[in-house]
C-alpha cells in the first residue's frame, strides 16, 4: 500500500547516476529517504514523486525497480530519465529512419542527408521503440498523451556506445532502457512507462564529465517536470472516480455480507449487485437502512440471508 499520500498518484523516476538526478531532485524538492540500503532514493510524498538512483547498466536498473516499485498501482507511472549517446554521422537508411518517415515515407526519399546530425547534444527525446541489442528483443512503450517532445528509437547495449558499434537504424543508444522496460513490466503496463533521454555524446562517453551531465539535465529539467506533472494529473484524473466507487463498495459489502451470512460465492454476487447499484444511482446505504427498519436485516442464518439477498437484488435492479 502507498504510504500516507492520499489520492496522489506516484511517479517513479529512475536514473542511472546522481548527476542525472540532481536537477530533478532540486526542482521537485525531493528529500533523501535513508531507509533504503542499496540505492539512493529521494521522495516528495506531497507531490507523489519518488526518484531512484539505480546505478549504471541493466542489472542495477532491474534490481532497483524490484526494490522500489513493488507498491506501484494503477495510475502510477515509471519514468526512466537519463543521458544517452546520439547515433549520427551516418547516411540515414530508408527503413531505419522510422521516425523521420512522416511525409517522407511514400516518396522513399531519405529526408536527412549524409553526415547530417539527427540529434543534437542536449536534445531530449521520448522513446517509442527500445531494442535490447544483446537479444534483439524490441519493446514499445505506449505513447498515449500529447507531450511536445521529439520521439526517437533507442538501442540498449551492455557497454557504452562507440562509433564502431552496429547501429541497426536507431538514433539513440543507452545502457538501461530495455532493462527498465522489462523489469518495469512486472509492476507497470506499457502505458505507464516513459523513457526520456538527453543526448550527451556521439560515442565518446568517457569524455563526458559529471558536471556536463548535470548541466545537460538542468537544461531539460523544465521539460521533464512538465511531462511528469502531466502524468501526475492524468493519473489523478483516471483514478479519482474509481477510488470513490471502491471505497463505498468495500464498506457496504462488508456490512451486508456480515448481516446476510454470505458464503464466498454469495459475497461475490452481492458485491457485483452493490457495484451495479452504486453505478445506477441506487443509494445502497439508504436501502440497507430501509431493510434494517423493516426487520429484514440482520439475518439469523445463511438460509434467511439467501432470501434477503434475493429481496435486496430485486430492489437494486
Amino acid at each position: 500500500m502507498k504510504e500516507n499520500i492520499g489520492v496522489i498518484n506516484m511517479i517513479y523516476i529512475l536514473t542511472a547516476m546522481y548527476a542525472e538526478a540532481r536537477a530533478i531532485i532540486t526542482h521537485f524538492h525531493l528529500k533523501k529517504d535513508i531507509s533504503h540500503i542499496h540505492f539512493q532514493v529521494f521522495d516528495n510524498q506531497e507531490v507523489g514523486i519518488r526518484l531512484i538512483v539505480a546505478g549504471i547498466g541493466a542489472i542495477s536498473a532491474a534490481v532497483a525497480i524490484a526494490d522500489t516499485c513493488m507498491a506501484a498501482e494503477a495510475g502510477d507511472f515509471l519514468v526512466n530519465v537519463g543521458i544517452c549517446a546520439g547515433i549520427q554521422e551516418e547516411k540515414v537508411s530508408e527503413k531505419g529512419n522510422d521516425c523521420l518517415a512522416k511525409g517522407a515515407l511514400l516518396s522513399r526519399e531519405p529526408n536527412q542527408g549524409e553526415n547530417e546530425r539527427i540529434c543534437r547534444i542536449g536534445e531530449i527525446f521520448l522513446c517509442n521503440k527500445i531494442r535490447e541489442q544483446i537479444t534483439g528483443r524490441t519493446f514499445y512503450p505506449d505513447i498515449l498523451y500529447p507531450h511536445g517532445l521529439k520521439e526517437a528509437q533507442i538501442l540498449t547495449g551492455a557497454a557504452a556506445y562507440t562509433k564502431d558499434k552496429k547501429k541497426e537504424g536507431f538514433w539513440l543508444y543507452d545502457m538501461e532502457a530495455a532493462a527498465v522496460y522489462q523489469a518495469g513490466l512486472y509492476y507497470f503496463g506499457p502505458h505507464q512507462m516513459s523513457f526520456l533521454k538527453v543526448v550527451s555524446d556521439y560515442g565518446d562517453a568517457e569524455k563526458v564529465t559529471a558536471e556536463q551531465v548535470r548541466e545537460l539535465m538542468e537544461g531539460n529539467v523544465e521539460r521533464i517536470a512538465e511531462y511528469v506533472n502531466f502524468l501526475q494529473e492524468i493519473g489523478r484524473k483516471e483514478q479519482s472516480g474509481i477510488s470513490f466507487l471502491e471505497d463505498v463498495l468495500l464498506s457496504e459489502t462488508e456490512k451486508l455480507c456480515r448481516d446476510m451470512h454470505c458464503s464466498k460465492t454469495m459475497a461475490a454476487a452481492l458485491r457485483q449487485c452493490i457495484r451495479y447499484g452504486i453505478l445506477s444511482g441506487v443509494d445502497i446505504a439508504e436501502l440497507r437502512k430501509e431493510m434494517y427498519r423493516e426487520g429484514k436485516l440482520p439475518c439469523k442464518d445463511k438460509r434467511e440471508g439467501k432470501l434477503c439477498f434475493e429481496e435486496f437484488k430485486r430492489r437494486v435492479l
Binding site: D98, K102, L105, T138, Y140, E151, G189, P190
Partner: peptide, 16 residues
C-alpha cells in the same frame, strides 16, 4: 509517427 515493427503481435499482444 511511423514505427517499423517485426510482427503486429509485437505491439498488439504486449503484456499488461
Amino acid at each position: 509517427d511511423v514505427i517499423e515493427i517485426d510482427h503486429y503481435k509485437d505491439v498488439f499482444c504486449r503484456k499488461g
